[in-house]
Design a protein around this nucleic acid. Structure first.
Lengths: 341, 341
DNA sequence: TTGTAGGCGTTATCAG
DNA sequence: CTGATAACGCCTACAA
C-alpha cells in the first residue's frame, strides 16, 4: 500500500528543501526554471496531490458543506440536494450529507458530528420532531459560533439565518382558486398534522381561497394525517364526504386518493379533480397523470448553496451586524389530466 | 464571531501546558484530580470540541467515506445510500456524496476531489459513460494507492476490489419462469442498451428462462432503449408486437407500458401481465399496482459500507496479499396486481 | 504530576 | 534563488 506522496518525500528525493518544493509546485517566481522543471516533473511522475486535510488545517476552512435533511428517499429533498451538490461542486466544494430521519436526536447528533471543523457551514431542512419540540438550541449553538447556516423548506422563525422557502400559501391559494373557477365547490384538503410549517402554509392558502370566494369552510373536508406513511385513513375519509376536488400536500396522498376514487367508479377529472404537491415520478406517470405543484427543488438547492458559500467566504468584519435574507422560490402549477381548467 | 476554542486557549487561560489540558480532557491518570476537574469544567463551560481536521491530520484517517453515484433523484440509489449512511454513522463515519450524472468526466473529477485525503475510501456505482468507455484508470489509481474501494450494482471485472451486486440473472430468470408457468407465451423485455452490466444480466436471465422452457426467443420482443428518459419508443413498440407479458428492467418502463396497454383497452393482468425492477413509489401506488423485483438497496448499502469500513480500519500487513469478496444480495419478487400467478 | 518536543502536511515569512 | 522556521490543532513519548 503506497502512501500518498508528500512534499517531504519529494524534497528528500531531490535533495532540496520542503519549501522549495512547495514553491516550485506553485510555479513561484522565486524558483529557478531548472529546479521548477525538475520538481514539477518528479511530482507529476509520482502523481503528487496536496493533502486536503493539511490545507484545511492551515486555512481554517474545509471546502465541505454539511447538508442535513429528514429523508433521502424522497423526491423533493433529493431534488434540492441535486441543486446543492451541483452548485457546490462548481465552486469547488464537497457535500457531506446526513439524514435526520425526522428525529430530533439524530439531527442534533449529526450536527455535532460535523460542527467540529468538518464543514464550513450547514444547509438544513428541519426534522419533523424538531419542529414539534420547537427546540433549536443545536442550531443556535452553531450560529453563535459563527458557522453559516441556511434553512430551506422546513424553517423556523426562532433562528436568525438565511432561508429559502417556496410561496406555499400563495400557490395553494392559486390552485384552489383555479379549482373554484372551474366550477368546483366541495374541495377537500389532504394534509399532514401541521407542525410542519409547510403544511400549515398550504392550509392557509386553501382557506383563504375558499373564504375569498364565499365558500364556507367545512372542517370535515380537511383531513390531517400524522405522516407520509399513514395513508390508510384516506379511504374512509373519502367514503364520508361529498366532494368534487382534492388538494393534497404531497404526491402520495393525491395518487392514493385518486386510486380510491377510481375504484369507486368516479371519473377523473369530470367527477372529481386532483392537485398535488411535488412534481415527481408519481405525478408524471400515474393514470391519469396528476396536476401538481412543482417546487423547483433544484433551484432551491442552488440558491441555498450559493447563500451559504457566499457567507462562508465573506469573512464578516468584526463590527458589522449580520443581515439575513430569506429567498422565496415561486412554485408553479403543472396542469395534467387530473384537472380540467 | 467566536472562533472554535482550542487546547491552546484553555492552556493559556488556565496557565497550564497544552499537553496537560489534552491529557486532562482524556481523563488521563497522569493528571491530578484537581487540575483535571478545573480543566474539564472550563472546557465544558466553553463547549470545547476537539477539531476534527487536526485529528484527521494526525491519525491519517478522516472517518469520512466518499460515495459516488450516477444519480441522486433515483429510488434505488437513494435506497442504497440510506443503507450506507445509516451503517456509516453507526460506526462514527460521515458520508460525502458526489453525483457523476452518468458522466465519465464528472466521475473522474469527483474522485480526484476526494482522493487527496478527504476520505478513507470510496463506495461507487459506475456511471453509464464509464461502463461504455471501459476506462477505469481513475479507479485503478485510487486502489493502487491503497485506498479501499467498494463497487455496487454497476460494477466491472476490470477492477479488483470488494463488490456488492444482486442476483440479476437469477431473479430475472425466476420472474420469467413464473410468467411462463402462469401460461404466458409471448413475453417481451424492456431494457436499456446493455453497456449497463445489470441490464445485460437481466437479459441473460430472460433468455435462459425462455430457452429452458422451449420457447423460441423472438428478438423483436426485446426493446433496448438508450436511457431511462427515452420512453417514447415504447408505444410504437407495443403497437407492433403481439405479447401477453412484459418484463421491464425498471419501474418507469413498466409503468409507462402499463399505461399504454390500459389505453389500448387491454386488461391487466388478464390480457397482459407486468413485472418491473425496483420497488419504489411507482410500483406501490400505480393502478393496478406493479409486481416488481425488490433490490433491497438498504441492505446493499449497509453491506457495502461495512466492507469498506472494515477494510479501511484493517491496516493490511505489508506482505499479505489482499483478497476481495463480492457479496450477492438476493433480490425478491413482490407480487402485486399486475400479475396473477 | 506536569511540561517539552516533535510530528502529521502545508504554506508564509523571513533570512541567507 | 533557496532554505530554515513557525504556525494551523492535536497527540504522545519522553523529560523534568
Amino acid at each position: 500500500m503506497k502512501r500518498q506522496i508528500t512534499l517531504k518525500h519529494i524534497a528528500r528525493e531531490l535533495e532540496v528543501s520542503i519549501s522549495t518544493v512547495s514553491k516550485a509546485l506553485k510555479n513561484s517566481e522565486e524558483i529557478s526554471r531548472d529546479t521548477k522543471e525538475k520538481i514539477q516533473a518528479f511530482a507529476k511522475l509520482y502523481n503528487y496531490k496536496p493533502n486536503n486535510i493539511a490545507i484545511s488545517l492551515k486555512n481554517k476552512h474545509t471546502k465541505n458543506i454539511g447538508v442535513i435533511i429528514p429523508d433521502i428517499v424522497h423526491h423533493f429533498f433529493t431534488t434540492v440536494f441535486r441543486g446543492i451538490e451541483k452548485y457546490a461542486n462548481s465552486r469547488g466544494y464537497n457535500v457531506i450529507i446526513c439524514v435526520s430521519d425526522e428525529s430530533f436526536d439524530k439531527e442534533v447528533i449529526n450536527m455535532e458530528m460535523l460542527a467540529n471543523g468538518s464543514v464550513d457551514g450547514f444547509i438544513m431542512a428541519l426534522a419533523g420532531e424538531t419542529q414539534l419540540k420547537n427546540d433549536f438550541n443545536h442550531l443556535r449553538e452553531v450560529t453563535e459560533q459563527g458557522v453559516p447556516l441556511v434553512l430551506f423548506d422546513r424553517v423556523t422563525n426562532e433562528i436568525q439565518c438565511d432561508k429559502v422557502v417556496i410561496n406555499d400559501t400563495e400557490v395553494a391559494y392559486q390552485a384552489v382558486k383555479k379549482m373554484i373557477a372551474s366550477g368546483r365547490k366541495r374541495i377537500a384538503l389532504l394534509t399532514t398534522e401541521n407542525f410542519f410549517n409547510v403544511s400549515k402554509h398550504r392550509e392557509d392558502g386553501y382557506r383563504k381561497a375558499l373564504m375569498e370566494s364565499g365558500i364556507e369552510i367545512d372542517e370535515k373536508l380537511i383531513l390531517a394525517l400524522p405522516f407520509d406513511e399513514s395513508i390508510d385513513d384516506i379511504s374512509p375519509f373519502l367514503d364520508n364526504v361529498n366532494i368534487d376536488a382534492i388538494l393534497a400536500v404531497n404526491e402520495v396522498f393525491a395518487i392514493h386518493a385518486m386510486g380510491i376514487a377510481l375504484k369507486k367508479g368516479l371519473k377523473i377529472p369530470e367527477d372529481i379533480s386532483f392537485i398535488g404537491f411535488t412534481d415527481g415520478l408519481l405525478s408524471k406517470h400515474s393514470i391519469p397523470s396528476l396536476s401538481t405543484i412543482a417546487q423547483h427543488g433544484d433551484r432551491m438547492g442552488e440558491i441555498a448553496a450559493q447563500m451559504l458559500i457566499d457567507r462562508a467566504e465573506n469573512e464578516i468584519g468584526d463590527g458589522e451586524e449580520e443581515t439575513y435574507r430569506t429567498e422565496v422560490i415561486k412554485a408553479t402549477l403543472i396542469e395534467r389530466e387530473s384537472t380540467n381548467f
